[in-house]
Nucleic acid binder design. Structure first.
Lengths: 145, 145
DNA sequence: GTGTTTGCAAACACTTTGCATCCAA
DNA sequence: TTGGATGCAAAGTGTTTGCAAACAC
């Protein structure tokens, strides 16, 4: 976590032999400014508020680079859609979400993380990454019933 | 697990005011005969091997019913696609998959299950369901490097 | 200059829908 | 008889791609 996210992305581009461009810069900045989870389409809107001339294909292409570089991460909702969130400079976490109001809580549990490693090891697997989603009703929605 | 899967589905249809039809019967049977994880498209193919006249829309519609009834469950692969598997009469489990050869191992860990409940409770959530995917390299693929 | 990147629109894969017809109860 | 079910084809999603022009280095 010693270098900035922008620098991190620049390094990635360089290593991969790709160029920085105004469009990519805009998209990365917007991405970094945006909190929480959002769809590709939503990011597109946000980018275009500042730079309407940027095509959606470019946003999709850049989002792909962000993921490959490790700046971004995807999450998949219970409904099937794909969302993105910032990953670089943040600790790993999983998600707990409310099926009704869609509220999301980021969670982290060392016990679970440890068991995951353990389980993979028992099967001879080398663990690369994992995803865990807990779905249920938040306190507010549970009491609405 | 006291009644058969077919009966279970019949009950669901009845409760929901829907009818059993030859097409649904074919699809459910094919679904139950098919081991492992498969795409909607793959199920379509299998169904059509026996009953070529069944439309894909019907397969999709029936698959939806299978999920609503609880007979089927969806899983999402690391690559984004949606797969289906049999759920009724089987214990809950999570998945460990090889990123290279796509091999999948079904796993279950009481410690993790317990912690998940615990975490949800700590946040005031009522847990409905969860998904956990572990991704990595299986023994064979790891040694290929 | 040369290879990369862009915007556009068309292509894509997968899933859902509208509709006229057909069928189960 | 009547509301649900079907097949077909068309319409949606959300994402990717081909291409000629524009650009970064």
């Amino acid at each position: 976590m010693s270098i900035s996210a922008e620098q991190f992305f620049l390094n990635y581009l360089e290593e991969t032999g790709l160029n920085m461009t105004p469009q990519r810069m805009s998209i990365v900045q917007t991405f970094l400014e945006t909190e929480g989870h959002f769809s590709a389409d939503r990011l597109c809107e946000l980018v275009r508020e500042k730079a309407p001339e940027i095509g959606q294909a470019t946003v999709y292409r850049t989002l792909k680079l962000l993921i490959e570089s490790g700046l971004a991460d995807t999450i998949d909702g219970p409904d099937g859609g794909v969302l993105y969130e910032r990953a670089y400079g943040r600790a790993h976490h999983d998600h707990l979400m409310c099926l009704k109001c869609k509220r999301k809580v980021e969670i982290f549990d060392p016990v679970i993380e440890e068991r995951q490693e353990q389980i993979a090891r028992e099967h001879g697997f080398t663990l690369t990454r994992h995803r865990m989603y807990l779905y249920g009703l938040c306190p507010d929605c549970a009491s609405d019933d």
